[in-house]
Nucleic acid binder design. Sequence first.
DNA 1: CTGTTAGCGCGTTCAC
DNA 2: GTGAACGCGCTAACAG
Lengths: 327, 327
Amino acid sequence: MTPSTVSRVMNDSNLVKPRTRQRVLEAVQSLGYVPNKAARMFKYGKSRIIGLVVSAQHISELIYNAGFQAQFKALTEKAHNEGYNILIITSADADSETYFDVIKSQAADGFIIMSPSANESLASMLEEAGIPYIFNMKYSNNPADIYYASADDFEGGYTAANHLLELGHTDIRFIVGSVKGQIISFNGDRIRGFMKALSEYDIPFREEMIVRIPGQLEESYAGIHRLFQTEKPTALMISNEITTVAALNYFHDHGIRVPQDLSVIGFGPSEFFRGLRPNLTNVSFDIAWSSGRIVDMLLQRIERGPVSLEPAMKPKLNIQDSTARNE
Amino acid sequence: MTPSTVSRVMNDSNLVKPRTRQRVLEAVQSLGYVPNKAARMFKYGKSRIIGLVVSAQHISELIYNAGFQAQFKALTEKAHNEGYNILIITSADADSETYFDVIKSQAADGFIIMSPSANESLASMLEEAGIPYIFNMKYSNNPADIYYASADDFEGGYTAANHLLELGHTDIRFIVGSVKGQIISFNGDRIRGFMKALSEYDIPFREEMIVRIPGQLEESYAGIHRLFQTEKPTALMISNEITTVAALNYFHDHGIRVPQDLSVIGFGPSEFFRGLRPNLTNVSFDIAWSSGRIVDMLLQRIERGPVSLEPAMKPKLNIQDSTARNE
DNA sequence: CTGTTAGCGCGTTCAC
DNA sequence: GTGAACGCGCTAACAG
């Protein structure tokens, strides 16, 4: 009974006589032998682990975000179905070098990178090191060497604005978050879509139509409060789910009726908005689909080589109870 | 320039001449050499990975649960601070054997097991295999060989009920979830606490005071609807956050005013309830603390051996706007 | 069918 | 200060 025989038994090879297999299994049982996974990973050069790279601060915010929850669920399920597990890789900082150092020291077969900001230098470092990766979203307009699953955020912003304009609203505010003073790239696209819709209705765009409010509950509440002390828009587009909750709470607390006094459109998973009152009109993307695509693309890079980019995912406008005609 | 020299440089050994080190670093740079993590794990027998074991179905539900989010955040942060990363280990099924098979095939230094149901046989299998583990919660009253971070759920149920009884409520319902028809052990403790409070007020306990409602939004809404078609309790204790949201939505949709018509107490992180309207009176546990304890206990088992159980974590009653005197 | 051998990449030990 | 040799646990390839 040699190591290789045991190995054969453990790996269900059929090159073992039933009697021998039996004896091995008994021995395994009584000794409580467990094959060493690290040695296996070493031998095969594969871990069947997908690294989900997030900076430590960022994950704390993300976890409360409905969009991330939906994505996390979908990623986990998809990975599980493909026989992979997800390793949460937390980086102390979000800059390219730190990310790269953390990534290259991990034993994952590939990486999904959830950075809040653009990272072309990270992409080229990973490319050079031959490490398979996928970005969680589109960070730039240079698709040459950046892999990501993209959503058509321009269309999303356009669709939302168009719906409000059709209802006769002209004084619309678009509330977006910001990271270190910068507007995240997908919000940039949404804003451009918003502007296009405005121009189609011959409404001049003004800077103050874009309102930057931090994405945490208390800060958002304060930000909404500040806005409504000086302004009286008739419609709001809100790019972040937590801010949306804070806004609804503010309106509840101050007797502002939605949609009678104010129309509101949210961005995010439509299931999330079903839990709010009123049930919010929203622009949603199919997160399960895009997360599946992310895993597919990554696994293809891992197992079979290069992949080509898919067309961007289209948004869907779900009209519910929070938007009404502007009287 | 041999492999061992490179190894010495990579591991910051001071047995290398500065000039040699320099040459090695240059070569490393230009060749894009990255030490193989799997080989390192193999060599050291340590991965600095903590496995978070959840069944695949269960994680889909958990991720939308505010308590899990808080715990996930705390676990991730704590692990990161200790230099560990979290590996999400999804098991197809939640029975002991499947869990054990999945666990033993993973290269983590220890495991946090988030099973929805009791698992003493799993505990003994892990014990026997010498695999460090911690359960997410208390599953039985046999503490001999089961490690967990416990919360005083009896006290939680008692505190909530006592608050309502003090306010003059006598027709109270306690809404709990159930897994495969079974009441989860911590809910069992909460129910016993509830019963104790009732008995102190000489109110006889009746079976129908305990209402089992599934923990998803739509199902919870339907369950609440069913309850209120036949009953008119004056106060509710709700053990699950999603069910709480569904209940508030139902009350909103049907003109039931909280707290004028009905008092409601929730269980969960108090920050979560701040996002609801009305801001709910709640019984909360310090999840950051208990999650930190879980990681501490696990790391101690990994690095230094056995640990002793801590006293159970005490709940806190946060009185907000959803409970009022019963007129 | 089963035993023997070799090597995956790393870090450590032992010579030099 | 540096190179050569070894072994961690496993399994594929080869020999019998």
